[in-house]
Simulated scan of single mutants.
Amino acid sequence: MFGIRTLARFAALLTLAATALSASAQTYPDKPIKLIVPYATGGFSDALARLLAQKFTESLGQSVIVENRPGASTILGVGAAAKAPPDGYTLLLATGALTINPHLFAKLPYDAERDFTPIGRVVDLPYVLVSHPSLPVNSFKEFVAYAKSNPDKVNFGTPGNGTSPHLAMKLLEDAAGISVQNVHYKGNGPALTDLVGGQIHLLLDGLQQPLPFVTGGKLKLLATASPKRMPNLPDVPAIAETIPGFEASTWYQLLAPAGTPAPIIARLNAEIQKFTRDPAMRDRLFAQGALMHHSSPQELAAYSKAETKRWGEIISKAGIKLE
């Protein structure tokens, strides 16, 4: 049993620790901040992180340094962020993989809900459905009708088994009552190359990569997977117009290690709000098919929980397993 003096000392230590954390939060930040991106340089995730780092550096008065930690379906980068001290000086730019991986990997070096504190959602990158001209359809409704008449004869490229676009297509197959053949690639780049070359029929991707081929007439843009028509694509119907409630996108959120003081979380959430309301940032990301989406930490926690449940159900129903 613990003695009274031992308990008193323990309580005093807790008080000192809380006081130190409070003082640290009041002076935050007083040194550079590291922003971990679990993806390689050159993609949208990296570009978004560098825009965030630029604006945060200007606003916070301390350098925000982007650290790319790609590998193992984002597990390496996420795991590194989970082990960082909860002091606000290591942050994570997370994507939908955070809510998918728990259902695909039997063992992870982190627990997304336990090991992180949500800060805020930043942007959504709605998927668009693009097709090769050889597929004899010109609209989403025509595609569904054609797929129903030709089950398993339409093939769809994915950036890998169990990736978000793969699961989004599984969601679409189930919702539309169709069946297509999935062709897995190592990333969106090779899949897009084969789509342009006519080796596959369809692809779900963010707007940025396929857009030049759409404007050049080499691909057809059938629909968006946003909740409603995207402002920069007013003539392109949303899948939700045919299948109410359908939505699929890659989202980006900012997280901190669990235990990060609430005042620091609030400060960083306010910085995200500034970022999402900045007209220059909005227009720059808007041109790449991204939509600003600010949220409170509480709203983000609820959204992530719902996403984890949704993707888990899709993975289970489709019987998706990693080889």
Rank of each mutant, 00 (worst) to 15 (best):
22 S>P: 01
70 P>Y: 06
73 S>G: 06
274 K>L: 11
295 S>A: 14
86 P>E: 03
170 K>L: 15
95 T>K: 02
148 K>S: 05
251 W>A: 14
70 P>K: 05
16 L>Q: 13
275 F>R: 07
307 E>I: 05
71 G>F: 04
2 F>E: 11
97 A>H: 12
275 F>C: 02
186 K>F: 09
129 L>H: 08
65 I>G: 00
103 H>C: 00
171 L>M: 14
226 S>W: 13
243 I>G: 08
52 L>V: 01
87 D>N: 14
307 E>P: 04
237 P>G: 08
62 Q>L: 00
108 L>W: 02
291 L>I: 15
302 A>F: 06
101 N>C: 02
76 L>N: 15
272 I>F: 04
314 I>G: 03
16 L>D: 10
274 K>S: 07
82 A>V: 00
167 L>D: 08
105 F>K: 12
182 N>K: 09
226 S>E: 13
153 K>C: 00
298 Q>K: 13
118 P>E: 01
161 N>H: 02
306 A>D: 14
254 L>F: 13
294 H>V: 08
306 A>F: 08
258 A>G: 11
274 K>C: 00
113 E>I: 12
50 R>V: 00
252 Y>V: 11
87 D>K: 07
276 T>G: 00
41 T>S: 12
282 R>N: 07
105 F>I: 04
320 I>S: 01
230 M>N: 09
82 A>I: 00
201 H>Y: 12
313 E>T: 13
164 S>H: 07
117 T>H: 04
212 P>T: 02
312 G>I: 05
105 F>P: 00
124 D>S: 13
305 K>T: 14
59 S>E: 14
146 Y>K: 06
281 M>N: 10
81 A>S: 03
150 N>D: 02
183 V>S: 09
197 G>K: 14
286 F>E: 15
48 L>S: 01
38 P>D: 03
31 K>W: 08
84 A>L: 02
